[in-house]
Design a protein around this nucleic acid. Structure first.
Length: 199
DNA sequence: TGCCTGATTGCCT
DNA sequence: GGCAATCAGGCAA
């Protein structure tokens, strides 16, 4: 088992958002392993980022976002969906990286059942789609993605192995769905991947 | 206490 | 392109 190293998540959110591209998100449920390759991320900072949940300070909802680097910050949005973040930098920094899209690698049949649809490209191409596909819930908020036995980040799975992407393999755009902070270039995705949430 | 909004998705026209 | 679903957090009163 090849976990993500602490030194990686100790980067700031912008740096971590790019480093996470190509790594693997793994969720073991019962006897099955659900896993995908991270294709699209967004960075959320603390001060100077009005689009971030942490911008106005710590609350009960965003408490995990101020936890130590590598924790999962899972929140409910629009009353229906949940989204998964990886906390960045260090405890108290209030920085995190939203996982927006994943390329399904393992457990695809279960993902299809969880999602109620069949197209490979519709399983994990959105922040709330991938949590649904991987069976991630609000109860996973605060779990340590570096050491948790069920939900964690990895640099290798099966024959797939992560190596950091070069700058020209990464596309930089503005973030999706924000009313504030929409001009900041904090969205990143793997160039030419068919698994992004949108272009 | 009440109102408004949202780091989304999917179905409708 | 429009819009409903659905509810907790945040803030005003």
């Amino acid at each position: 088992m090849s976990r993500i190293d602490k030194s990686i998540v100790s980067n700031g959110a912008v740096s971590l958002a790019k480093l996470l591209l190509g790594t693997f998100l793994v969720h073991r449920v019962d006897e099955e392993t659900l896993a995908g390759r991270i294709i699209e991320t967004e960075a959320y900072l603390h001060r100077d980022d009005p689009g971030s949940h942490s911008f106005k300070g710590q609350t009960r909802r965003n408490r995990s976002m101020f936890g130590r680097a590598g924790l999962a910050y899972v929140y409910r949005v629009y009353g229906i969906h949940v989204c998964l973040n990886v906390v960045a930098l260090n405890e108290g920094a209030g920085e995190a990286v939203l996982i927006r899209a994943v390329e399904p690698i393992r457990g695809i049949n279960l993902m299809k059942r969880n999602r109620g649809r069949d197209s490979l490209f519709e399983l994990c191409n959105g922040p709330a789609k991938l949590t649904q596909a991987l069976g991630i819930t609000i109860n996973d908020d605060g779990k340590d993605l570096l050491v948790d036995s069920k939900l964690y980040l990895a640099t290798r799975i099966d024959n797939y192995c992560w190596q950091p992407l070069s700058a020209r393999q990464i596309v930089t755009k503005t973030r999706i769905g924000l009313s504030r902070g929409r001009d900041l270039p904090y969205r990143f995705y793997v160039k030419d991947s068919r698994f992004v949430s949108c272009l």
